[in-house]
Design a protein around this nucleic acid. Structure first.
Lengths: 227, 227
DNA sequence: CAGTGTGAAGTTGTTCACAGCA
DNA sequence: TGCTGTGAACAACTTCACACTG
């Protein structure tokens, strides 16, 4: 009843939806929601409620409600959210409905794994070419993706307007590859090497250090034994 | 039911008196400190200060000081921390000085990448065997690690006292593999499949969803363009 | 009722401010 | 002065409480 006294404020809040900052943890949960919603749709579900999502993904129900609010979809009370609307809103929010082409440097096992990883298609990302300095790898193909000499990177990146660079080299090479990527016009670097990259302010760097997860596991294991 | 969301309570006895909980983000930073400290030691550095570590890893200086305090090492004022002491304290804290043997299920590209990943040696973890249901993979070897029929898992796990199970199967198979791992005595599951695993309370589950990182990158890229 | 939606409270993690030390 | 070390302020994220809806 109080809110009826302040209709302007409600208006403001609604229109300010896009301005309010979305916590990074929420962004990280979004792909899980999308994955689930897509499979629910495939099973013919037209609606899904926040509590149901919460139960299926082992997250807090109110957390889901909050996260849903960032996507802009509004749910029907007692029924939940339209799976179709949700899917599109999540894809739009995450940018998964746009094409994102990436170059990968370091065609070892990890690089090959990423190239082969089907999941990226779902996210609209396609690794269009791989690069290496190893003469034995240059000229080969991994799942239809050619491995080029690193020297070809510049020309190809400029020609194809590539914005994402993936580093799967050994850690010693990572910084010099990052430097080259910056010069060559890459906007975002996804780094899998256990190194800390120094790049200009405007370049986006996302580190994926597999180590960190291992540390958490071993730490929990040790704690369990002692405790 | 919400076990994977709750921050773990890593506890540490500092002065045989006070028990302080270590934030999980700190645990995740520890491997980076360790990695750096080891390379500094190789370069002959006997001491390193928190501000130096901070600069090299792009972390906040006081954050480093806080994190160091969890390891129990005390630094010399104006000089910093002994790299030798730090290395040992970090290895002890992380449990990287103990052996951790793991079985991996799903010998695809990602599985192969993990098997080949040298970094795990540093963490004291060794993947001792891989398993798959694909007859074409069974009997092959990846970097000296044999790929067995999944049916062999139980016997081998019991015989070798394996505590860590790694899942690198497609998402559809993940839950049933997790169920089997639980029955077979695995204590901790490291899951790379984009699925949410349901396991008993006492089993540690660590999810590594590569998607999440991709979401953050694409989201940041999108923001940059609009803003 | 069983759901959405949202401001407030609570919790966790980070950064600041400053004391102590060589 | 440049560092460690720590309690306190601050910011970020999560959870709670409750109004509202069909």
């Amino acid at each position: 009843m109080l809110h009826e006294l302040y209709p302007m404020e409600t208006e403001l809040l609604t229109s300010a939806k896009k301005i309010l900052p979305v916590p990074e943890p929420s962004v990280r949960r979004m792909p899980q929601y999308l994955h689930l919603v897509k499979s629910l749709r495939e099973q013919g579900e037209l609606y899904v409620s926040a509590p149901t999502i919460a139960r299926l993904l082992h997250v807090d129900p109110t957390q889901v409600v909050k996260d849903m609010s960032y996507t802009g979809v509004s749910g029907k009370t007692r029924i939940g959210f339209s799976t179709e609307e949700l899917q599109h809103a999540l894809e739009e929010f995450l940018g998964f409905n746009r094409r994102h082409e990436a170059f990968l440097v370091g065609a070892g096992y990890l690089g090959s794994a990423l190239i082969q990883y089907q999941g990226f298609r779902e996210a609209g990302m396609k690794i269009v070419a791989a690069f290496d300095t190893d003469k034995k790898k240059i000229g080969t193909e991994i799942q239809g993706v050619s491995v080029f000499d690193l020297e070809k990177f510049r020309d190809l990146a400029a020609r194809l307007h590539i914005t994402i660079g993936i580093i799967t080299t050994p850690s010693g090479a990572a910084q010099s590859i990052a430097d080259l990527m910056v010069v060559w016009g890459i906007k975002a670097i996804w780094n899998f090497a256990p190194a800390t990259l120094k790049v200009p302010e405007h370049i986006i760097v996302q580190d994926t250090h597999i180590y960190a997860n291992l540390a958490v596991i071993i730490n929990k294991l040790g704690k369990q034994k002692n405790g």
